[in-house]
Nucleic acid binder design. Structure first.
Lengths: 205, 205
DNA sequence: CTATATTATAAACACCATGTTCATAATTGT
DNA sequence: ACAATTATGAACATGGTGTTTATAATATAG
C-alpha cells in the first residue's frame, strides 16, 4: 500500500498539473497540448513534471481515473434490488453524472483522452446492465435470441452514444428529457417509439 | 474543377504513401507513426511527402476519405423506395462493408484516425435513416415523442457501436447474425427482445 | 523524338519538444 | 533546528518537423 498522505508539495504539484492539463485540453485539444505549456500554466519547473509522471498520457489517465471512480462510487453502493426494472435508475445516474461533468465527459467520450477510459466506462455499464438483467429477468434469459453479452453492450453503447451526441450538440435537451428519450428508444424500440405496430415475428425470419 | 488525371508519378507517390501509412497504423497505432517511417516504407524521399501533404493528418484524412466514398457509392444509387421498411438493406450494407474492410473500420471506429471520419460516417447514416423515416413513415412523424433528429442519430450510433464491439472482439458472430441482432434490438427494443411484454404507456410518464 | 514542364531527391539547416543529468535551493515532517 | 524530500534551472543529447536549394529523373505535349 502506498502512503495515504504524500508530501504536501507533491499533492499541490499534481493537483496543479492536472488542472492545467484539463483547461488546456478544453482550449486546444489534447494532442496540441505540450508539457512545457502544462508546467508553465501550473507555474512549475518543467523538470518537476518528470518527477511525477512519465509523460502526458500518464497525467491524463490519472486525472480521468478520478472521474471514473466518482461514477462507480455513485452507482455501486445502491443494491440492485432497489432499481426499477428498466434500469432507469442506472441510466439516470449516468446522464446526471455526465451533465455534472459535461466538459470532462466531452473529452472522455470524444475519444480525445485516449479510448481507454471510454472503454472502461462502457465495460462497467455493460456489466452492470447484464447484472440487472440476470437479477431481474433470469427466467427470460434462455429465451433471448440475442446473446446476453451483446444485449448488455448494446445498452451501454447506445446510452453513451446518445450522451456523446447530446454533449457535442451543447445539450439541446435537458438531462431528464434525454433519459426519457433513451428509455423509449432502448426499451420500447425505434419502431414502437414512432407509433408503429409490428407483428411479433417480423424480425424472426 | 481539378484535372482528372494528375501526373502518373503523383498518383503513384500518393498511393504508396497511403498504403505505407495504413500498414504502419495497423502495426503500431496512428500516433506512433512518423513521417520518416512512412516515406521510408513507401520508398520515397522525405521531402517528397511535403510536396503532397501538409502533415500526417492530411494524408490520413484523404486516405480514409476513399473508404467513406466507397460506402456512400454502394448505398446511394439504390432508390429509397426499394428498401424494406426496417432499413434492413441499409444496415446490411453497412455491416457488409465493415466486414469487407475490417482492418480499416477498426482504425476508423476506434477513433484512432481522428474522430472526424467516424463522425462523418455517423452523420451520413443518421441523415439517411431520417430520410427513410420521412419517406416511409411521414404519417407517424407528428406523433413521435422523440425528436426525429435524435431518432436518426440513435439508429446510427447504435449500429456503429455494435459494429465497433463486433470488430474489437474479432467478429465472434457472422455479419448476418449481427444484422439480425441489430434489428431485433433496435426496432423491437431491448425489452421485447428479451421476451417481456410491457404496457404501452410504461414509458410515457 | 525532342523540348519543356513537372516532379522526385538529397543535403543542409533552423526549430522545437522531449527527456535526462546535476548541482543547488527551498520546503516539509518530525 | 535538522535531516529528508522535493522543486528548480541550466545544460545537454536526441529526434522528428518543416523549409530551402540545387540537381536529377521522368512525364507529357507538340
Amino acid at each position: 500500500m502506498s502512503q495515504r498522505k504524500p508530501d504536501r508539495r507533491v499533492r499541490r504539484t499534481r493537483q496543479q498539473l492536472s488542472e492545467a492539463l484539463m483547461s488546456l485540453i478544453l482550449e486546444k485539444g489534447y494532442d496540441a497540448v505540450t508539457i512545457e505549456e502544462i508546467t508553465e500554466r501550473a507555474d512549475l519547473g518543467r523538470t518537476t513534471f518528470y518527477l511525477h509522471y512519465k509523460d502526458k498520457d500518464e497525467l491524463l489517465i490519472q486525472s480521468l481515473e478520478a472521474v471514473y471512480d466518482d461514477l462507480v462510487n455513485q452507482i455501486d453502493p445502491h443494491p440492485i434490488e432497489e432499481w426499477s426494472m428498466t434500469g432507469e435508475a442506472l441510466s439516470a445516474m449516468a446522464f446526471q453524472h455526465a451533465a455534472e461533468n459535461a466538459r470532462l465527459y466531452q473529452i472522455i467520450l470524444s475519444g480525445q483522452g485516449g479510448t481507454s477510459i471510454a472503454q472502461r466506462i462502457r465495460a462497467y455499464i455493460a456489466q452492470t446492465a447484464i447484472r440487472i438483467i440476470e437479477t431481474h429477468y433470469a427466467q427470460y434469459i434462455p429465451k433471448t435470441a440475442v446473446p446476453l453479452e451483446i444485449l448488455g453492450n448494446y445498452i451501454a453503447i447506445s446510452m453513451m452514444g446518445l450522451m456523446t451526441w447530446w454533449l457535442e450538440n451543447d445539450q439541446p435537451y435537458s438531462a431528464a428529457e434525454m433519459i426519457s428519450f433513451f428509455h423509449q428508444l432502448n426499451f420500447l424500440g425505434a419502431a414502437k417509439t414512432m407509433g408503429l405496430t409490428l407483428s411479433e415475428d417480423a424480425f424472426t425470419q
